[in-house]
Structures are given as C-alpha cells and as structure tokens.
Simulated scan of single mutants.
Amino acid sequence: MFNLQEKVFVDLMLYFGRRGRENIHELKITDFAATTDADGRVYIYMSSDELTKNHQQDENTSDGRMYASDG
C-alpha cells in the first residue's frame, strides 16, 4: 500500500519527471504554480525551466500539467 510520500513521488515522476529521478531532489514548492485552462479547469505546472542534457536551448519542449480531480 502506498503512503502519501510515495504517491506524491509517483505523481511528480509521471507529470514532471522528464529526466527521471535526476532533477526531482532539487524541486521546491516555488518551482510550481497553479492556473486554469481555457475550459476553466485548474492545473499545476512547473514555473521554473530545467535544462535537459541534450536540448539545453530547445524552445519546443512540452510542459507537463497535473490537473485537479473532482472529489
């Protein structure tokens, strides 16, 4: 059975872990922000950019979004 810390880790890896575990230990609460999309749904996104190993100046990166669930 998962505890809360393991569940949060899995969610971070799923939505924001583009480089696996490499940058996860450096994340802070200030690296995330919340906003709404065009449909009015709330989501969390990474407000700070992280450099990737092979694409350090890549302008075409996709941003992960973790949407709020109802209930």
Rank of each mutant, 00 (worst) to 15 (best):
V10F: 09
A38N: 11
Q57G: 12
E59G: 12
T35N: 05
R19M: 10
R21S: 07
E22K: 09
M46V: 02
M46A: 03
F16K: 00
L4N: 15
L51E: 14
T36D: 05
S69Q: 15
F16P: 00
L27Q: 00
G17V: 03
E22P: 00
V42K: 13
F9S: 02
L27G: 01
D70E: 15
L51M: 13
M13S: 10
H55Y: 08
R65G: 00
M46Y: 00
G40M: 06
F9M: 07
T61W: 13
S48Y: 10
T36P: 01
G20H: 03
K53S: 10
D31G: 01
Q5D: 12
T61K: 15
Q57E: 13
H25S: 13
G64S: 06
Y15M: 00
F9V: 05
F16C: 01
L51H: 10
H25T: 08
L4M: 14
Y15D: 00
E59T: 14
Q57H: 11
S47W: 02
N3I: 09
Y67D: 08
R18E: 11
M13P: 01
V42Y: 09
I24Q: 02
M46W: 00
D37E: 09
Q56G: 09
N54R: 08
S48D: 12
T35P: 01
E26L: 09
Y43L: 03
N54H: 10
K7W: 03
E22Y: 09
D31P: 00
G71T: 15
M1I: 13
F9I: 09
R19I: 03
T36H: 08
L4P: 01
A38W: 06
E59I: 10
F32E: 02
A33D: 07
I44M: 13
Y43V: 01
A38P: 05
G40N: 05
D37C: 07
V42P: 04
A68E: 12
M46L: 14
Y43M: 05
Q56Y: 10
Y67P: 00
V10T: 10
G40D: 07
